[in-house]
Design a protein around this nucleic acid. Structure first.
Lengths: 157, 157
DNA sequence: CTATTTGCAAACGATTTGCAAAACA
DNA sequence: TGTTTTGCAAATCGTTTGCAAATAG
């Protein structure tokens, strides 16, 4: 992971990568394609797992922007459907690009006693989800599925 | 839970309310049966949907106790498996009695734009969950399943 | 009596917001 | 230009924690 960019000034060429699609959606949502937004999406594209705002902030490096700006933008990006919000119960929201944007889809098994987290492959049946969506007239339906329990080590507690 | 078979004991002194079962678990967990705890469980038994600590606090009324006490107790009760923690993404944790304690098991479909919440009946296949649990050596496995999307009214936003 | 638990207040960490300056379209 | 967005700082809000007094067992 390298950031060959110069310091962020008033001199930023509309970069390189296939941000086209993302940019496209921003525009469609009547949002401006700003440096912070591009940087945030860029960080997200480079990470497989969900990141907290603070982690995103730390990963920005050169393209640094205010933490508050990240918070504001995560709301915007979530609203536009570009990112997905997660909540693993540790008090901090986490985000990753929406499935359509290329992120992998997976779930977690969390120990409610020691917070051990294990990745899980099983997923909620697509047919069921579609049925639920149409029955209630919802679109853009996704699901958040998390398993909780007591891990081997915590069972005797 | 190291011993699946619970023994009947002739040790009962202040069992005067229907909290017997809950009280039982508290004792087994070497916890004291205090007024705040009984009041909290009582409130939870009277509500179908998950409540935030603040809501529980408000519902206590006469049996009022400090908010901090509620926070501390919810952790204890969750640890003992008496209550279940939910997170609907609005920043506040919510709790309801564990399934075994009589609460109904259901899921939710939440609009990420206006926060409309609809109850859903579909549930994650039991076979799958069992497989996941045994594969990772977990016990007391439950799942948290939430659907998100855009409700009819918010689709045009 | 002794270990837990509670009330109270202060401490915290995550997230939000007001406002003037800066950046897009 | 007219808006939207950002930086900065202060404000919120949910939750946690230290400590002495109160309480269950």
């Amino acid at each position: 992971m390298s950031s060959p960019c110069a310091q962020h000034q008033h001199v930023h060429r509309l970069i390189q990568q296939p941000l086209t699609e993302l940019t496209e959606k921003l525009r469609r949502g009547a949002r401006k394609v700003t440096a912070p937004r591009q940087a945030i999406l860029d960080v997200l594209r480079k990470h497989a797992s969900p990141l907290t705002n603070k982690e995103i902030h730390a990963a920005l490096g050169k393209e640094d922007c205010d933490l508050a700006t990240i918070y504001r933008n995560m709301h915007t990006l979530e609203l536009l459907g570009l990112v997905r919000r997660y909540d693993f119960g540790d008090g901090a929201a986490r985000f990753e690009l929406s499935a359509e944007e290329g992120s992998s889809h997976h779930h977690h098994l969390v120990c409610t006693r020691c917070r051990l987290i294990v990745e899980v492959d099983e997923c909620f049946p697509e047919e069921f989800q579609s049925a639920i969506a149409s029955r209630h007239g919802f679109t853009q339906v996704q699901h958040r599925l998390e398993f909780t329990g007591w891990c081997p080590k915590c069972q005797s507690r």
